[in-house]
Computed example of a mutant assay.
Amino acid sequence: MVGAGQFATWTAVATAGVVFLLGVVVAVALRGQLDLLSLGERPAQHAGVHVGRLRVVSIIAVAVLTSAAVAYAGLISFVGLVVPHALRLVIGPSHRGLIPLSALGGAVLLSLADVAARTVIPFADMPIGIFTAVVGGPVFFILLRQSLKKQGAR
């Protein structure tokens, strides 16, 4: 028999999953318009994109995806910020491949970090945040350096 606590847990997991899938569907639907927006507001408007509406819908989709990830995985899901930026360095700016690969890459990275946290030291559960920070810190540093180079700083 399922207790109230177990029912609440499974309901929360199912809800987070549904919310996440809804966010992914919206993100995939917007990828072409996001590619146009990355050319600039004017070119996107000339191509028929309603920039204001796209921004609002994108922000809502990102908030929904982030809230579902944090509800399901906790605060370690900040890796979701690192993975798309790291992948953009490798595959380029197109959202067509970036959105699905970001979802897959984040899942793979968190899975590997979880395995490392559980197995690096026998019989000790290390905080998974240590391993995600090992990846996240250098990636953010590389992004910061590239951003400064583009602005003309050393």
Rank of each mutant, 00 (worst) to 15 (best):
T66K: 06
L98W: 04
A4E: 15
A12Y: 09
A86L: 13
R42W: 11
G74N: 02
V25M: 11
F141T: 10
A12F: 06
A71H: 06
I121L: 10
A16F: 14
G3M: 08
Q6A: 13
R145M: 05
H50E: 15
W10F: 15
A4C: 13
A14I: 10
F78T: 06
V25K: 08
Q146A: 11
L39P: 07
R53L: 14
R118N: 12
V134Y: 12
F131L: 00
G74M: 00
R118T: 12
S77W: 07
A47D: 08
A103N: 06
L109Q: 03
P127R: 04
V134L: 15
W10C: 11
G152I: 09
S102A: 08
V70T: 04
P138N: 05
V83T: 03
F140S: 03
A86S: 10
Q6F: 12
V115E: 05
G17R: 08
T119K: 05
T11S: 13
G17A: 00
L75K: 11
V79H: 01
V82A: 10
L98K: 01
A69E: 00
G32K: 15
I121M: 12
V26T: 01
M126E: 06
G137R: 03
Q146N: 12
L22N: 10
D125M: 15
T132S: 02
V24M: 10
L89I: 12
K150T: 12
V18F: 15
V57M: 02
R55E: 04
G105D: 02
G5P: 11
A71Y: 03
L112F: 07
V24I: 13
P84K: 05
L65F: 04
V57Q: 03
G17V: 08
P93A: 06
L39Q: 09
V70R: 07
L112C: 07
F141Y: 10
S58M: 13
G48A: 07
L34K: 00
I142E: 09
Q6K: 09
S67F: 01
Q33L: 07
V26H: 01
A71S: 10
L34P: 03
G80N: 11
V134W: 08
R53H: 09
I128Q: 04
A124M: 14
P93I: 06
L148H: 14
V18N: 04
I121T: 10
T9W: 09
V134A: 15
V2I: 14
G137W: 03
L65N: 02
V24G: 03
L104D: 01
S77F: 08
V82Y: 03
A103W: 11
Q45P: 03
V139Y: 02
P100C: 04
A29H: 13
A153L: 15
L109H: 08
V57C: 01
Q45R: 14
H95K: 03
L110Q: 09
F131M: 00
M1W: 09
H46M: 15
A16K: 00
A68E: 00
G23H: 01
R145E: 04
L89P: 05
Q146L: 09
S67P: 04
V64D: 04
F131D: 00
L37R: 06
I99R: 01
F78P: 00
F140K: 01
V19S: 02
I59N: 12
L104Y: 07
Q45I: 09
V82K: 03
L104W: 02
R55K: 10
V51N: 06
P127F: 06
V108A: 01
V24P: 04
A16G: 09
F20Q: 07
D114Q: 13
K149V: 09
A133M: 08
